[in-house]
Design a protein around this nucleic acid. Structure first.
Length: 358
DNA sequence: CGAATTTGACCCGCGC
DNA sequence: GCGCGGGTCAAATTCG
């Protein structure tokens, strides 16, 4: 139980911000490509009019573009399925997550409401520390970013030591790790590493406490791009893959070898806001896929969290506020986590909705 | 042969 | 101060 909670919490810890739209987009792309569907969350219960709505040329980027306009009190209230999902890449053998099975337990474990209650972030990373808003805590690293002093001081010394010990990263200290905004989402997939169109290089893997599944760490291979991605499987539901993006790509969206994803990231336009979407055919597929894409059952949860309360609103994706998506998110929908990174804040919302709608 | 992955060790922050 | 867990590094290995 605890574990589950922790998992969720950690996810909640992620920050959803406008600072890393590309990451978000990538996430979205990945999610969608997996059939996981970030968006499957949005539609109304079971209603899959998604194709009509989503069918439009709205791009992921647009959808995901985290803008500052979003001010909706409740993300979910205004959230609806995105227009189109990129065709699932062949490489990913995503299985139709027909029904999300995020553990209800987990969900239940999370407190309540959602709406953007900044302070509620308590549960985050540190269940133990209540007031340390998780948000801040999880992002505490980020928070710490501003304090180079000590770090720098120690830095030199430490470096020496480090060297002596093992020539490991001398730099680390300097930069006192600044955590980029993170964006996490859950997808149901057999494949751990979702193909989001970007090139990733795995640089580490760690066993996850209380989970039989390891966590893999990836870094964008593009030079100068420090975007990282963390992938792990939910211990609760092995079919669920939790992907966390950190940072934003500073380069154009790479051309997908598979050509499965037609995303056109135009660096000049705020990093790929334009998303070229799929062929009509896909739409058809979509319908077929709908069950897991728009399915009312939450097959996927998007969790996003903003590091700062203020950023919260700012970080909300356009699509969330797009009037095109008028239908309230449904139960099934994935939960969008944002906000102080409290998963609970989000999940609850979802749940609430579900309750309502049902 | 270069790129990507694996994997053990180390760093770092945090709670106790 | 110590232990734990998350995150990262980099040498070794594997793959294309």
């Amino acid at each position: 139980m605890e574990k589950k909670k922790e998992n969720l919490i950690s996810m909640a810890n992620l920050r959803f911000s406008d600072e890393n739209p590309s990451a978000v987009a990538a996430a979205a792309a990945a999610a969608t490509s997996f059939g996981g569907s970030i968006f499957d969350m949005a539609t109304g219960a079971g209603a899959c009019d998604g194709d009509t709505k989503w069918g439009s040329s709205l791009g992921f980027m647009d959808l995901l573009g985290i803008h500052q306009d979003f001010i909706a009190p409740s993300l979910f209230d205004s959230f609806q399925p995105p227009p189109i999902l990129p065709p699932p890449p062949p490489s990913t053998s995503s299985e139709p997550l027909l029904h999300q099975q995020l553990d209800t337990k987990q969900l239940q474990a999370l407190p309540s409401p959602a709406s953007i209650v900044p302070e509620s972030s308590e549960v985050l990373n540190n269940p133990a520390t209540p007031n340390s808003s998780s948000f801040s805590s999880s992002s505490n690293e980020a928070a710490n970013d501003h304090e180079p002093t000590k770090a720098e001081d120690d830095e030199e010394e430490e470096q020496d030591q480090d060297k002596t010990k093992k020539q490991l990263k001398p730099k680390k200290k300097n930069q006192k790790r600044q955590r980029e905004p993170r964006f996490a989402f859950m997808t149901k997939s057999e494949v751990d590493h979702l193909d989001d169109g970007y090139r990733w290089r795995k640089y580490g893997q760690k066993a996850v406490k209380n989970s039989p599944f390891p966590r893999s760490y990836y870094r964008c291979t593009s030079a100068g791009c420090g975007v990282k991605k963390r992938v792990e499987r939910s211990s609760d539901d092995p079919s669920i893959v939790v992907t966390t993006y950190e940072g934003q790509h500073k380069h154009p969206y790479p051309i997908t070898p598979r050509g499965s994803i037609g995303i056109n990231m135009d660096p000049s336009s705020s990093f790929g806001r334009s998303f070229v979407v799929p062929q009509p055919q896909y739409l058809h597929q979509q319908q077929q896929l709908q069950p897991y894409i728009y399915n009312s059952s939450p097959s996927l949860n998007i969790t996003s969290i903003t590091s700062s309360g203020s950023s919260f609103n700012a970080s909300i994706p356009d699509f969330l506020q797009d009037r095109r998506f008028n239908t309230p998110p449904t139960s099934s929908s994935a939960s969008l986590l944002r906000d102080h990174g409290l998963l609970q804040d989000i999940v609850p919302t979802q749940m609430r909705k579900e309750a309502k709608e049902q």
